[in-house]
């Protein structure tokens, strides 16, 4: 089954996507990642205002049987979280690139963006 990969997003090896708009990045997990996890039943998001360094734990998503940590793909401050996930974590499965987004970060170091993958490179890795 082919998994959707959007051309206008950046990606990581850990199957996260980033939508860069000026100084902020909206972050989620890819279609491939959600299909591997299946049945996401719980999402634990960070508090708004939290400062993260690239590689820190960003949030935790749980499926029925597994717990997966998602790490910050870049450094930054949490400016917004997807509060709808508290009641409807299944949005991550149903709409990984839109309604199932996780966190918005204020980008701290634009140079870190250079390490991210474009759609073509990400596609080769899954």
């Amino acid at each position: 089954m082919t998994k959707e990969i959007r051309d206008d997003l950046k990606y990581t090896d850990a199957h996260e996507w980033l939508k860069i708009i000026d100084n902020t990045a909206i972050i989620g997990i890819t279609d491939y990642a959600q299909s591997e996890l299946t049945d996401i039943v719980f999402a634990e998001l960070p508090e708004v205002g939290k400062e993260l360094i690239k590689g820190d734990e960003l949030c935790v998503v749980e499926s029925v049987k597994s717990v997966s940590e998602i790490y910050a793909p870049i450094s930054g401050k949490v400016v917004r979280i997807n509060e709808k996930l508290e009641d409807t974590p299944e949005m991550i499965n149903e709409s990984p690139y839109d309604d199932g987004w996780l966190v918005e970060l204020e980008i701290k170091n634009k140079r870190e963006l250079e390490d991210l993958l474009d759609a073509g490179s990400y596609k080769k890795r899954i």
Partner: peptide, 11 residues
């Protein structure tokens, strides 16, 4: 096999 369709659905 840990799952086929999804754990929830199978359950």
């Amino acid at each position: 096999p840990i799952q086929f369709s999804s754990i929830k659905d199978e359950h």
